[in-house]
Amino acid sequence: MFLYICRRIVYTIPIALAVAVVCFSLVHLAPGDPLSAVIPADAPAEVVERIIQAYGMDRPLPVQFFAWLGRAVQGDLGFSVATGRPVTQEIGRALGYTFVLSLAAAAIGFLFGILFGTLAAFFQGRWSDKLVTGIALFGVSVPHYWLGLLLVIIFSVQLDWLPSLGGGSGSWINRARYLVLPAITMSFIPMGIVTRTVRSTVADLLGSEFVTSLRARGLGSSRIANHVAKNAAPTVLAVMGLQFGYLLGGSILVETVFSWPGTGYLLNTAIFQRDIPLLQGIILTLSMFFVALNLLVDLLQTLFDPRVRRN
């Protein structure tokens, strides 16, 4: 078990390295000179030369890469061109906002997903199943920036119940009010996907021989539910983990619609302002985060499922 965990962690090192290489090359692959954003077009050649040296861009790419990586590992991602603040500080603030939004969206999405999925599995083929499956399909397929706009129109413009722009400030309650609409918007996709996963997993289990065998032992529905839940957990947890990961990755569209100051919004800003260090920093952070997430989901699954544990 311990060995398995170690091996699994070691396996992620090459993946993380590859991700870093891609992040770094992104800047050099993108059309246009990465420095054109920093250097005024009419700067004298001598100044340009000095800036190039300052950024270390005159050195061969591999050297640049390792220098960049070395600094990144120590938590130095350079400075934002637009604001002049350290990239890590910008990202840190945005991460906080995205994290809060993801947490709220996941709580809503997972709760309803599990509820709906279980309901649908128990009433397979009947109207409640069809209704729930329909909701799930809607949740997955509706464009969520559109849904966001719709919610804004109804709850902010028409009813004037909730604010729709920004991250809020001041009291805890006031901040929470700003969170409601974007969180609901973001919860639809995980809700739909978790509903579908729970429905198919639980339905499979309910039709399986071992549930028949549990009933043949005289166990009541609560005991059987316990068995079914423990069997469904690895699959459902894996899906929820990944969904939470996607949420944490932030959504450019939804965060922009609500001007929610998270990573998606920041990424959007960085792209439009051609803020290369910031862009690089965000992409690196988000991809490292996904690598770590995959590792975590894997390890959790192992912990829950004795069959995986053996191999």
Partner: peptide, 12 residues
């Protein structure tokens, strides 16, 4: 049951 592998709960 015919198939004990299928009739036991695999995770208990």
């Amino acid at each position: 049951f015919q198939e004990p592998m299928l009739a036991f709960d695999p995770v208990f």
